[in-house]
């Protein structure tokens, strides 16, 4: 019984933290989509058309899914989308690091000198992916 309530608290805290991270990251990008487009373009993965679409859509996807996760509505759907996003973030950051790109992550700031790509960013994204995975699994129960 105690175990179950501890698990519930853990689930709630994790949900709030992950939702907060995505809402914050999304709002920062929504405030300045043009700068975020430059950041996405710096990864040199997508053609400019898809860079523009990503810069417009991705921040809102983060915010909307973050809000759904926060409120607990459509949990499985929102956590599955966030799981997919965090998987893409891991791949993008790791590939930029492997290619030796000296660029800003564009994760939580889109202006100024920002946070540079590096192993710590990859670890951060892997942890976010793991947290999303746990939330998705728990949303199916």
């Amino acid at each position: 019984m105690e175990n179950r309530s501890a698990l519930k608290v853990f689930d709630w805290v994790l949900r709030m933290v992950v939702a907060g991270i995505f809402i914050y990251a999304g709002v920062i990008k929504i405030l300045n989509p043009a700068s975020f487009a430059d950041q996405v373009d710096n990864y040199r993965i997508l053609p400019y058309f898809l860079v523009a679409i990503t810069a417009v859509v991705l921040p809102w996807l983060e915010v909307i899914c973050g809000i759904l996760l926060l409120t607990g509505r459509w949990r499985a759907a929102s956590s599955l989308i966030l799981l997919g996003l965090s998987f893409i973030f891991v791949l993008a950051v790791a590939s930029a690091m492997i290619r030796g790109l000296d660029i800003n992550c564009g994760c939580f700031s889109v202006e100024g000198e920002g946070e540079k790509i590096g192993a710590s960013k990859v670890i951060e994204d892997v942890l976010l992916f793991a947290a999303n995975f746990v939330l998705f699994r728990r949303s199916l129960k």
């Binding site: 989509p33 043009a34 523009a52 809102w60 996807l61």
Partner: peptide, 22 residues
């Protein structure tokens, strides 16, 4: 998400220009 994001981008002062060329 697509609906909201494109509507907001349309009126955003720092909105992204959707084009094939940078």
């Amino acid at each position: 998400t697509f609906l909201v994001s494109f509507c907001v981008n349309f009126i955003h002062p720092r909105g992204v220009t959707i084009s094939f060329q940078k």
